[in-house]
Amino acid sequence: MRKTQLVLGTMVLAGLAGIDPARADYDYPWCIQGAAYDYPGDCSYQTREQCLLSVSGRKGYCAQNPAFLITRPPFQPIPRGRHLPPA
Rank of each mutant, 00 (worst) to 15 (best):
1 M>E: 14
2 R>N: 14
2 R>G: 06
2 R>K: 13
3 K>Q: 09
3 K>G: 02
3 K>N: 09
3 K>W: 09
3 K>E: 08
4 T>F: 15
4 T>Y: 15
4 T>D: 12
6 L>D: 02
6 L>V: 15
7 V>E: 08
7 V>W: 14
9 G>W: 08
9 G>Q: 06
9 G>F: 12
9 G>V: 09
9 G>C: 13
10 T>M: 07
10 T>Q: 11
11 M>N: 06
11 M>F: 14
11 M>D: 07
12 V>L: 11
13 L>M: 14
13 L>S: 04
15 G>E: 11
15 G>K: 10
15 G>S: 11
16 L>M: 06
16 L>T: 03
18 G>I: 08
18 G>A: 08
20 D>N: 12
21 P>V: 13
21 P>E: 10
22 A>G: 02
23 R>F: 09
24 A>W: 14
24 A>S: 10
25 D>N: 12
26 Y>Q: 09
26 Y>H: 15
26 Y>W: 13
27 D>M: 15
27 D>Q: 13
28 Y>N: 00
28 Y>H: 04
29 P>S: 01
29 P>W: 03
29 P>E: 05
29 P>A: 01
31 C>H: 02
32 I>C: 01
32 I>D: 01
33 Q>H: 04
33 Q>S: 05
33 Q>R: 05
35 A>H: 11
35 A>T: 10
36 A>L: 09
36 A>C: 08
36 A>Q: 12
36 A>M: 10
37 Y>G: 03
39 Y>R: 07
39 Y>C: 03
39 Y>W: 14
40 P>W: 07
41 G>W: 10
41 G>R: 03
42 D>N: 15
44 S>E: 07
44 S>C: 04
44 S>L: 06
46 Q>L: 13
47 T>A: 05
48 R>S: 06
48 R>L: 05
48 R>G: 00
49 E>G: 01
50 Q>I: 11
51 C>Q: 00
51 C>L: 05
52 L>M: 10
52 L>P: 04
52 L>K: 08
53 L>S: 10
54 S>W: 11
54 S>D: 15
54 S>Q: 02
55 V>L: 04
56 S>G: 02
56 S>T: 08
57 G>W: 14
57 G>Y: 08
58 R>V: 04
59 K>Q: 12
61 Y>K: 04
62 C>F: 02
63 A>H: 08
65 N>F: 01
65 N>T: 03
65 N>S: 03
66 P>C: 00
66 P>Q: 03
66 P>W: 07
67 A>R: 13
67 A>Y: 15
67 A>G: 07
68 F>R: 13
68 F>V: 05
68 F>L: 04
68 F>K: 12
69 L>W: 06
69 L>M: 13
69 L>F: 04
70 I>R: 11
70 I>G: 00
70 I>K: 12
71 T>M: 08
73 P>Y: 00
73 P>V: 06
74 P>F: 02
74 P>D: 05
75 F>A: 06
75 F>G: 00
75 F>W: 09
76 Q>G: 02
76 Q>P: 00
76 Q>I: 07
77 P>M: 03
77 P>N: 03
79 P>V: 11
80 R>V: 12
82 R>E: 08
82 R>C: 08
83 H>S: 11
84 L>A: 03
85 P>N: 01
85 P>L: 13
86 P>S: 03
87 A>Y: 04
87 A>E: 15
87 A>L: 15
87 A>M: 04
